[in-house]
């Protein structure tokens, strides 16, 4: 049973201290420390098995069946976006969005959230009737409708095609600019990390190998030399033998 001493932070900061998580005798995270400031957009890169999903699930409190110890402090209001949209197929789109909401204006807020992700008018559709990208937009709306202080996203665009993914990047940046939650985005895509985040953490065997602050304007492109430099650094740290030309 993973015990989380510490508790809830009010301002949207995330603090992890001496976190241990493992499966059986294998420790995935062993004495892991991390601090994320309020409103920071952090991308967590790493190869499979590096512990990035384990960390995200620990922060989301979804690992009650995993052994471990340590201190986790997260905002009380946090939301999770999974790799699959994870919409309930038997609930219409709007009901999926307001699933975690209470109160009389839940439907109003749900409608507004759907409009924000560009799905106004699809409130009464069944999830099965939407494309993969649209389903993931609904999942984003569901995550943001509760106005979370922390958004945890576990490879949210991993299952989408390249074109849809680019559009989702724009949407996520836009939503982030408007709501300013703290974001922890798990991804294995270096370009995605550099495009979206203000700080990229590279996780290797359960520890932070690279902690890179991305100093780029909001409008980012692969043509910016600095973008390419960040990309090079991260790819090299990932052990990709990347030679151009």
């Amino acid at each position: 049973m993973a015990t989380n001493l510490g508790g809830l932070t009010a301002t949207g900061t995330v603090r992890v201290h001496r976190l241990v998580r493992g499966f059986g005798s294998r420790a995935v995270l062993d004495g892991f420390d991390l601090e994320i400031g309020a409103g920071e957009f952090v991308a967590l890169l790493g190869r499979s098995g590096s512990g990035k999903s384990t960390l995200l699930r620990a922060l989301a409190g979804l690992d009650s069946d995993v052994d471990g110890s340590g201190v986790i402090e997260v905002p009380e209001k946090s939301s999770v976006v999974f790799q699959d949209a994870r919409l309930l197929p038997w609930q219409r789109v709007l009901d999926n969005v307001v699933l975690g909401l209470r109160g009389s204006n839940a439907h109003e807020r749900g409608r507004a959230a759907l409009a924000e992700v560009g799905l106004a008018g699809r409130e009464n559709a069944w999830p099965n009737e939407l494309s993969g990208g649209e389903q993931q937009r609904v999942a984003l709306a569901r995550a943001l409708v509760s106005e979370p202080e922390l958004l945890l996203a576990d490879e949210p665009f991993g299952a989408l095609d390249a074109l849809t993914r680019l559009r989702m990047h724009d949407l996520l940046r836009e939503l982030y600019a408007r709501h300013r939650p703290t974001v922890l985005l798990v991804t294995h895509d270096v370009d995605e990390a550099v495009t979206l985040a203000d700080r990229v953490l590279l996780l290797d065997s359960g520890r932070i190998a690279v902690d890179l602050t991305i100093d780029l304007p909001a409008q980012r492109s692969h043509r910016q030399p600095q973008f390419l430099a960040y990309r090079e650094t991260l790819l090299r740290a990932l052990g990709v033998n990347h030679s151009e030309g």
């Binding site: 999974f82 994870r86 309930l88 038997w90 699933l99």
Partner: peptide, 25 residues
């Protein structure tokens, strides 16, 4: 079980979890 996890991540009260996820499922 992914839907159960979704319910946990949204911190659904048990009654809502029953009504919206378990029974329709």
């Amino acid at each position: 079980s992914r839907y159960v996890e979704l319910g946990e991540s949204l911190r659904l009260p048990r009654a809502v979890f029953l009504r919206r996820i378990v029974l329709p499922g």
